[in-house]
Amino acid sequence: MSHDIAVIGGGPAGLSAAINARVRNKTVLVVGNDYRESPLYRAERVDNYLGMPGLTGAQLLDAYQRHAEDMGVEFRHGRVLNIMPMEHTCYLSIGTDMEEAGAVILATGVSRGKKFPGEAEFLGRGVSYCATCDGMLYRDKQVVVVGLAPDAAEEANFLQGLGCRVTYVSGKAPEGLDPAIAYVRATKLEIVGEASVTALRAGDEEIPCQCVFLLRHAIPPTDLLPALELENGYIRVDREMRTNLPGVFAAGDCTGLPLQLSKAAGEGLIAGQKAAEYLDGL
């Protein structure tokens, strides 16, 4: 399906961008996790947002979501696994599906975890970020699911249903995991192998496997777009929220300090406006 603009991330920056693009009559798809999983949603009180002191994070995000829905923004829960910029369009891989957009706005927040040892080396050789994409390749084989997202147990159950021999690893016991799936509690992880993955070291235990599925909330922007330029670890943008890639904009925490709600909403406004202008100029 084709949209004028795809926004990656449904927080304050992403929804501000989406709303301002809709004001300019652009079709907008927001791809991300359930907004109620955001750390902001659990904030007991927000006092530094102009004109609206004392609200909880949940009240603010509920209002943002209603506003965007009322404006006709489309939503899709899922992880963007890859973005392929082409001339005047971008293709986004979301699970096993593909979406097309004329412009992309990155509003992914900040990455809250480093790569595990061996993750980058074995990506595509036994490291996967998508159970539905790659699960069929490992039917009747041993796989490990590293649960770092709320839907990871569901994905592990899916792999078990395909016929994979699944072990689930996370820092705390998941809810809804198939009782037939072995569970290992661990947070110190290392992916090991030779030509491809052979095992996951989880704490003091080594779990033999042919694939490790790393199921995070989201994938870092530079994994989505390797040519994306960074500055001090954040996406480099100009004052119009343009990145170094044509048709790709960014807003919010992913562009740098301060990591504040007002900044995110303001940058989202600019990104939405400028993405719409970019499309009008094609």
Rank of each mutant, 00 (worst) to 15 (best):
A153K: 05
E206M: 13
I207M: 10
L224P: 08
Q160Y: 12
T222L: 00
S262M: 13
I191M: 05
K172V: 04
K188F: 02
S196W: 02
I235W: 09
L261E: 01
A182P: 05
V237E: 12
G163K: 09
I219T: 14
L214Q: 01
P174M: 10
G171I: 04
I191S: 06
G203Q: 08
A156Y: 05
P258I: 01
F213K: 06
K188Y: 01
Y168I: 04
P226S: 03
P179F: 01
L228G: 03
G252R: 11
G252W: 14
A186L: 08
L245N: 07
V192R: 07
A195C: 03
V192M: 09
I191C: 04
R201L: 09
L148F: 02
L162S: 05
L148R: 07
V248Q: 12
D223P: 00
E231L: 12
A250W: 08
G233E: 12
G256I: 06
G161D: 02
L159D: 01
D151H: 14
Q160F: 14
P258W: 06
E206L: 13
L200Q: 02
P226M: 03
K188G: 10
T222Y: 02
L159N: 00
V212P: 08
E190K: 14
M241R: 15
P226E: 06
C254H: 03
L257R: 12
A218L: 04
G252H: 11
G171E: 08
V143M: 10
D151Q: 11
Q210S: 15
D223W: 06
A182Q: 15
D223L: 12
A149F: 00
V166D: 02
N157P: 07
L228Q: 03
D204S: 12
G147R: 07
L159V: 02
A199I: 05
C164M: 04
D223C: 00
E205Y: 02
L225M: 03
V212N: 04
K263M: 04
A180H: 14
V166A: 08
A264C: 01
S196H: 13
M241K: 15
E190I: 00
L224R: 12
V146A: 05
T222W: 10
L230V: 13
S262T: 13
D223V: 11
K141C: 01
A218E: 12
L215Q: 06
D151P: 00
N244P: 08
C209V: 07
A202W: 06
I219Y: 03
L148Y: 02
A173M: 15
G176M: 05
V169M: 10
S170E: 10
Q142S: 14
A182V: 12
K172I: 06
C211H: 09
F158E: 07
